[in-house]
Simulated assay, not measured.
Amino acid sequence: MTSEESPLLANRDGVAPETMYDRFRPGQKRWIVFVVSLAGVLPMFVQATFVPSIPQIAKDLNSTHAVVR
């Protein structure tokens, strides 16, 4: 097996390995990257909005910070 060969790139069902990169159109690839990127960034936005409000939520519920978290 040379350095460029891989079991993932093996010729299966008569399909050339190069065609695996053409499975999605360029527009579809952009949307996939956008959705995956959004899924990675979204938790940071949620944390940035929720964490600063913990003291007020704890005060409103007559509780402690640890219980609210």
Rank of each mutant, 00 (worst) to 15 (best):
M20Y: 12
L42T: 12
L38K: 01
Q56N: 13
A16I: 06
T19D: 14
A39L: 11
M1E: 14
N11G: 08
V46G: 09
P52I: 03
N62S: 13
P26R: 10
R25I: 07
T64Y: 05
T64S: 15
F50L: 04
R23F: 14
P55S: 00
I54T: 05
R30H: 03
L42G: 07
A10L: 03
A66E: 15
S3Q: 11
D60W: 08
L38C: 04
F50I: 02
D60Y: 09
P7Q: 05
Y21P: 00
S6E: 00
L38M: 07
A39M: 11
G40T: 07
S6V: 00
R12Q: 05
E5R: 06
V15L: 15
S63Y: 05
V68Y: 01
S63R: 10
V35T: 11
V36I: 08
I57M: 03
V33I: 10
P43I: 01
V36N: 02
L42R: 06
W31L: 09
V51L: 07
E4W: 01
N62Q: 14
A10F: 03
D60A: 12
G40Q: 07
P55T: 02
D13I: 07
G14V: 02
K29H: 10
Q28M: 11
R25S: 15
R23H: 13
Q28K: 12
N11L: 13
G40A: 10
L61A: 12
P52E: 04
M20R: 14
M44K: 08
D22L: 11
N62E: 12
G27C: 04
E5S: 09
T2S: 14
F24T: 06
L38N: 02
I32T: 02
S6T: 08
K29A: 11
A48Y: 05
A58Q: 06
S53A: 15
L8Q: 05
V36F: 06
R30G: 09
V33S: 04
F45V: 10
